[in-house]
Design a protein around this nucleic acid. Structure first.
Lengths: 276, 276
DNA sequence: GCCTTATCTCTCAAATAATGAGAGATGACG
DNA sequence: CGTCATCTCTCATTATTTGAGAGATAAGGC
């Protein structure tokens, strides 16, 4: 708050945040409304954004986000940012529950570990940061796969073999699909001795401000310690931690009016049904 | 030019464009210099951008692009934008050379076709927009694979089988790696009857403003018509078209000073070796 | 460990540049 | 063909940005 912030820039990004999907074509007016800006101001801003390629004007004069945003996003070190932002959160979590926490994201159909914390007494699998693992058999992987659109999912899980690492590993694609559907439905994944026979994991997604899954966080423990009661405890703690991380990494900007049609549950939003 | 543009917004994006890679940590001063802005102005802008999460401040007070940019980029319909922007360019090209032009990008390790133009007399493979194809055996696929970082490449080409569609299909991973190396070196790819025995393709990359490959464009013709002379002709035409498309989709913003260290060849830049 | 240099941060007055209302023109849609 | 929404421009007001400067702080060289 010390240094005065450039209001125009903030407003411009409020406009950009007005978009809520690649298929949404918005008029200048609609964007202005969502950004809580006067029509004329929004109009000037969108013109500016168009000139630099941040938005593109299509037929009927409607706007969509432009390729400039893609270019800029390529310079973002997602893994590093998440690791740094999550450090305190997952360290606390690991020690509080006395188990191992991982954060990972999907790269090329495989899970890349970007953060890991284990306690002296916790089960520490031989994972290294930056190493990649097949996605189908870990909690992290299931959460990440479950968030993929159908076509990309096909590309990934139809390709590689589903090798049985333990008797519990899912080796059938149909079963895997059903499992992913379950993950989608309940919002978290379980790895029940599918990688190692003495290990159980729980994993939850990490969403961006629009509710898209950008990464996942998991808790790993000895299988015998992970009884049903503890699973609930761990799952809730994971979800809280994930929420805290989301809040930290995707600061909820000053009021952007949500789109008209009801949408995905946005991150940090307390589920709340308005009566009326 | 009609409507006055918001200068602050343009300057803010000039600052963001100052970043040239995920591993680059920049000081406020350096960014200001690259954006040709006074130190104090850049300072205020970067503070603003930090507040909304567009940049993140790391140790030593240095800045990196933040997750907000990733969120925003998820709302970009890359395929649609490229298809619309390329329509005229590739239609002209297809008719001038009398062959079939495709544009595709990589999704989940496979090539997705996002644009296609064929002439009445050209060879028209049974490709449909939106359909996906294994990447290893097409010109498009080779260009796209060649641009991947090593680790992601491993994930993709180690997985699926390299099925021989014709006697010329590359079925050996070592050979494929060498082929991709060749593609990287010369900047274009050839599919010499590897999908169909009567078909040859040439493909070139489509870069963003930082020189990253975001998509690829290919020309397909009857194998017997694609003699060496014609390949050169087609290749040059493809490269020109790709360049035109890059220029259209990634408008070269008002002067952003390039980083100190020599870097990737930026899009639209004529290859030119400075004598020193 | 000290000196040099670069970067960070704030203040201030000047004036540029953004603001928001209004209203005519244009286009969409039934 | 009429209605409504959106687009686009103008203008006077005023809030905001501007850029230089300078002290405080941190980085880097030796």
């Amino acid at each position: 708050m010390a240094t005065p912030k450039n209001q125009s820039v903030i407003k411009a990004f409020r406009m950009l945040k007005g978009f809520h999907g690649p298929d949404e074509w918005l008029t200048s007016c609609e964007l202005s409304r969502r950004a809580n800006l006067p029509e004329a101001s929004g109009y000037r801003l969108i013109q500016t954004l168009e000139q630099i390629g941040a938005v593109v004007r299509g037929p009927k004069g409607r706007y969509r986000p432009g390729m400039l945003l893609v270019s800029l996003s390529h310079n973002v070190a997602i893994g590093d940012l998440l690791r740094e932002a999550s450090h305190k959160i997952i360290t606390d979590l690991a020690h509080r529950l006395d188990l191992t926490i991982h954060i990972g994201l999907l790269e090329g159909g495989m899970v890349t570990y970007i953060a890991k914390v284990c306690t002296p007494t916790s089960l520490s699998p031989h994972t290294r940061l930056g190493s990649q693992l097949e996605a189908y058999c870990s909690g992290l992987g299931k959460v990440l796969l479950a968030a993929l659109p159908q076509d990309q999912l096909d590309g990934f899980i139809m390709d590689g073999d589903l090798v049985a690492l333990t008797p519990y590993t899912i080796t059938d694609r149909t079963v895997l699909r059903a499992e992913l559907q379950k993950v989608r439905a309940r919002g978290y994944a379980v790895d029940d001795r599918e990688i190692r026979a003495d290990m159980r994991c729980l994993a939850v997604p990490i969403h961006d401000a629009d509710g898209r899954v950008v990464a996942a966080m998991s808790a790993t423990d000895h299988a015998e310690r992970m009884d049903e009661f503890r699973q609930t405890e761990v799952r809730i703690a994971l979800q809280e931690a994930s929420c805290a991380l989301e809040y930290k990494v995707f600061p909820p900007g000053p009021s952007v009016v949500p789109p008209m049609s009801p949408r995905l549950p946005a991150a940090h939003e307390i589920p709340f049904v308005a009566h009326g």
